[in-house]
Design a protein around this nucleic acid. Sequence first.
DNA 1: TTTAGTTAGTGTAAATTTTACACACTATAT
DNA 2: ATATAGTGTGTAAAATTTACACTAACTAAA
Lengths: 229, 229
Amino acid sequence: METGLPKFDSAFSIDCVIFGFEAGELKVLLIERNEDPFKDWWALPGNLVENDESIETAATRILYELTGLRDMHMEQFHTFGEIHRHPLGRVITVAYYALIRIIGQKEVKPVTQYAKKAFWHAINDLPKLAFDHSLIFDTSIQKLRRRLSYQPIAFELLPEKFTLTQLQLLYEAILSKKLDKRNFRKKMLSYGFLKELDEKQKGVSYRAAKLYKFDRRKYNKIFQNDLEG
Amino acid sequence: METGLPKFDSAFSIDCVIFGFEAGELKVLLIERNEDPFKDWWALPGNLVENDESIETAATRILYELTGLRDMHMEQFHTFGEIHRHPLGRVITVAYYALIRIIGQKEVKPVTQYAKKAFWHAINDLPKLAFDHSLIFDTSIQKLRRRLSYQPIAFELLPEKFTLTQLQLLYEAILSKKLDKRNFRKKMLSYGFLKELDEKQKGVSYRAAKLYKFDRRKYNKIFQNDLEG
DNA sequence: TTTAGTTAGTGTAAATTTTACACACTATAT
DNA sequence: ATATAGTGTGTAAAATTTACACTAACTAAA
């Protein structure tokens, strides 16, 4: 691709697939690019890694710049290093996924200059993405699915207090398949790391469901001898 | 660490954890470094990524330079990007594991200049490693264990024809635990992707075992609908 | 050829886990 | 009071996993 833009030699970046869960749907935060290349395209938020920061730090910073949020769950899942994945030069990128809890509104105010705006998109209805970001996204979903079975990542996407139905809907969204209600509940409760609260859902126009909390201490106790990697 | 060596700005490398299986033991190929920093230390083979090659290509090249082998199974498993992981400057490294079949001798003739020699080391008896390579190795083992349960990686480490006992010993070595012989065989054979040959082990001073082959075509057919990532 | 030594190869019963499946209860809104 | 919508619950069958020990086959040495 000939863009007329200045080329650069070689660089190193982070791209983030930011997942959120709302209204029974799994969503991803995309930015609309403000700059060439791929001006006006949707893309995963990302940026270059500075020389004086680790890639973890860079990922945290980039996420903060975009969402204003810190301390969310993040995990590296793959590094993409095709030569021509960026039209302006060699850019190797480490991809992270991030799981965030609060989805205030459809639009998020990005703090960076290269993004016009940021929107939540349902994962089953994504636009075409800039660069190789569609590949990066597809890879992220696969990793997420796999990790769901051996890491307590679902609770990073739910509010602190949640109902079993919400938890099940989230599992179904990530795995992209229906699960049996009774079996799901039986299984989840059998682990012993869900704490039933003396509280119920509010503001619903039907029978309110019990609320639960994820008890990380118990989780760690139960799985302390298992490998997590 | 002050070494007096020239510093460089920022670079990008590949490090490889090369696994082999011999005499019932899982082994890793380490090089003895010929250059500072960490001269005379054992290290994982690795090298810088050139600007005109993808990271996959670089990994393949580096592996070839060290072992003279091509077409072995390789897979990326993590990227290490702490700022000070390399004493001479910023080096971000993508770590791959490689699985290789033939272990001719204890020593491998490396083709590169920075390695004095290369030796197979039993994974339970590793020396201290240069840089953050011990961490990289530990991570590789965890990933290997996890992937063993959903990818047919064991067969990359065995000769084309193998006995069930060899296969079991390999599983035990990777998982670092004993398995029940009858249950292991029952399970493995039940998958249907092992082909029993009309041939037996040779050169053993006891009852020779049947040889089996991994039938990749059948494997793919059986697992075509499952995700592999 | 006999014997000792070594690994190969095999089956079953019990326990556990997974699956399939449907209806009464509770709360709200009208 | 009644219609509506989601909550919450149990059981039986099937499938999978686990625990467990001896005979068969072959080689090597006597």
